[in-house]
């Protein structure tokens, strides 16, 4: 594992911690898309079906469990926690995520490495992760103002994807084999989705104003 991959995993972890911190400290999930969080929970649950069958390293196993547990905890808080659920912006969270799930599943049935349950679900999770941030971006755009923690949450998620791409470039030059084309292509698409957000985040940082996404 190289430093970029590790840094990518850490920024991913930090983004989740920021979200948990926001929910825990403010007892509010305002500005957070439940649909995106549910998609991430689905992503982790379907990708890590190999948790008990394929052992890579202790690090990988622990991270997989952390990602599954934290994503389920966030969804639980937003749906069931008596205080947190009241702050959920249901009317702003309008992205039609069910069609995206369906499209990703059909794509996974058509484009996969092997036609087995584990491989189809693995491909499904990769496709779904690429677009899972969309409901969140739509919600931020519709609500206009973005609070600091929510902005940082999305920023760290984007950084995680960017670092994964640098990790692939690094691996390309230092290892002769490493990954799967499905993950690479989807990863590029996923990172592209953040480009717009990064741009406006940079603008708000440069001008020292509150982050706002144009409608």
């Amino acid at each position: 594992m190289n430093i970029f991959r590790f840094a990518g995993d850490m920024t991913h972890l930090i983004s989740i911690l920021i979200l948990l911190l926001k929910i825990y400290a403010t007892k509010s999930c305002a500005g957070i898309s439940l649909k995106t969080q549910e998609l991430y929970a689905l992503v982790f649950l379907t990708r890590y079906l190999d948790l008990f069958t394929d052992y890579v390293s202790l690090y990988n196993t622990v991270m997989k469990i952390v990602f599954i547990a934290s994503s389920l905890a966030i969804v639980w808080c937003m749906r069931r926690h008596p205080l947190v659920r009241r702050s959920y912006d249901k009317d702003l969270d309008t992205f039609r995520h069910q069609y995206v799930v369906l499209a990703c599943f059909v794509l996974a049935l058509l484009l996969n490495e092997k036609f087995t349950i584990q491989e189809v679900f693995w491909a499904f999770s990769i496709y779904l992760e690429a677009v899972a941030i969309l409901p969140q971006l739509v919600l931020l755009q519709r609500s206009g103002n973005v609070d600091n923690l929510t902005g940082q949450y999305v920023l760290f998620l984007g950084a995680y994807r960017g670092l994964y791409i640098i990790n692939w470039i690094y691996r390309y030059f230092t290892e002769d084999h490493f990954t799967r084309w499905i993950a690479c292509v989807s990863g590029l698409v996923q990172t592209g989705l953040y480009a717009d957000f990064f741009y406006y985040y940079y603008l708000s940082w440069k001008t020292n104003t509150k982050l706002k996404l144009p409608a």
Partner: peptide, 10 residues
């Protein structure tokens, strides 16, 4: 082969 099906990333 570059894309050898390694699944060691998260």
């Amino acid at each position: 082969k570059l894309f050898d099906g390694t699944k060691d990333e998260l």
